[in-house]
């Protein structure tokens, strides 16, 4: 019974991954893709923990932890990169005034 539940969970997880990957490629804007990447990262973290239980090996928990940390940093960095920087905008406008 519980084996069936676990396999069902696996299939549902695959479907979730497919939907998130679809959104990642479909876009249409950069934030949309980053949201998809963030969701993918959380699903992958859960999948790594699931793998740890599947193989009975707790080393995958460390991988999940590091993966979650790196994914979070990546999302924040990309978000800061696509955000128009206020200081930079000021610098550009002041330069224009000087010209």
């Amino acid at each position: 019974m519980e084996n069936f539940l676990i396999v069902l969970a696996f299939v549902i997880g695959l479907a979730a991954l497919a939907l998130a990957i679809w959104r990642f490629f479909a876009g249409p804007t950069t934030p949309d893709r980053v949201v998809a990447a963030d969701t993918l990262a959380i699903i992958t973290t859960a999948a790594l923990v699931w793998l740890a239980a599947f193989f009975g090996n707790s080393i995958y928990l460390d991988i999940a932890l590091v993966y979650a940390a790196l994914a979070f940093v990546a999302v924040v960095v990309i978000a800061r990169m696509i955000e128009p920087d206020a200081k930079q905008a000021d610098a550009v406008s002041s330069q224009k005034e000087a010209d």
Binding site: M1, L5, A9, G13, L19, T39
Partner: peptide
């Protein structure tokens, strides 16, 4: 064990709903 399996299934269902919302 059945409680654990049910929790995992519930969790993946929510993950799926999140992805469906994304979609």
């Amino acid at each position: 064990q059945i409680i654990g399996a049910s929790l995992i299934l519930l969790g993946t269902s929510f993950l799926f709903l999140g992805a469906l919302g994304l979609f």
